[in-house]
Simulated scan of single mutants.
Amino acid sequence: MHHSRLSTLVLDCQAGDLQEAAEFWSRALGKPIVTLDQDGDGKYAELRTAADEPIILLQKVTHESRVHLDIETDDIEAEASRLDKLGAKRVNLVRDRWWVMEAPSGHRFCVVRQQREPFGPHLNAWDGTDGN
């Protein structure tokens, strides 16, 4: 059995200045900026959200700006396999840490490791018997 839940709303920003994008979204959503450089590489900024809200992350990208979802899990391989059975496709394993996947609708999303403690309350438990 493994667990997963919606974790993060990721604003993919094709922008020269991630700080400018973060300041806009911070003001637009009424969420203060936690950091403008989450990983030390200048690619990720985070806005403050409550513990029961999804994380809001801004990611500097080279492709067109869009929004994607991250699903967090305590077993990345089991969750990716479950989603495969539902019709998703694996696109790319990034740094051996998360899967970029594509839904049958064409939307890209990521399967990532657990992002917050505690792991609830909006948690799904999957037993692996039927893909649900």
Rank of each mutant, 00 (worst) to 15 (best):
H2K: 06
R5W: 04
S7M: 02
T8F: 01
T8R: 00
L11F: 14
D12H: 11
C13M: 14
D17Y: 11
E20T: 14
E20L: 14
A22I: 10
E23T: 14
F24K: 09
W25P: 06
S26C: 11
G30F: 11
G30C: 09
P32D: 08
V34F: 13
T35S: 15
L36K: 11
D37T: 07
Q38K: 14
D39N: 13
G40S: 09
G42W: 13
G42S: 13
E46H: 07
E46Y: 07
T49M: 06
T49V: 10
A51V: 13
A51H: 07
P54W: 07
I55L: 15
I56G: 00
L57P: 02
L57E: 08
Q59M: 12
K60Q: 14
K60T: 01
E64H: 09
S65A: 11
S65N: 13
V67K: 00
V67Q: 13
V67P: 02
E72T: 04
T73Y: 01
D75R: 03
I76T: 08
A78P: 00
A78F: 03
E79M: 10
S81V: 05
R82T: 07
L83F: 04
D84R: 01
K85F: 01
G87W: 05
G87F: 06
A88S: 12
R90Y: 03
V91T: 07
L93I: 02
V94H: 10
R95F: 05
V100G: 05
V100Y: 05
S105Y: 00
V112G: 01
V112P: 02
Q114C: 12
R116C: 07
R116I: 12
G120A: 12
P121V: 05
L123H: 04
L123E: 14
N124Q: 10
W126G: 02
D127I: 09
G128L: 10
T129S: 12
G131R: 04
N132R: 12
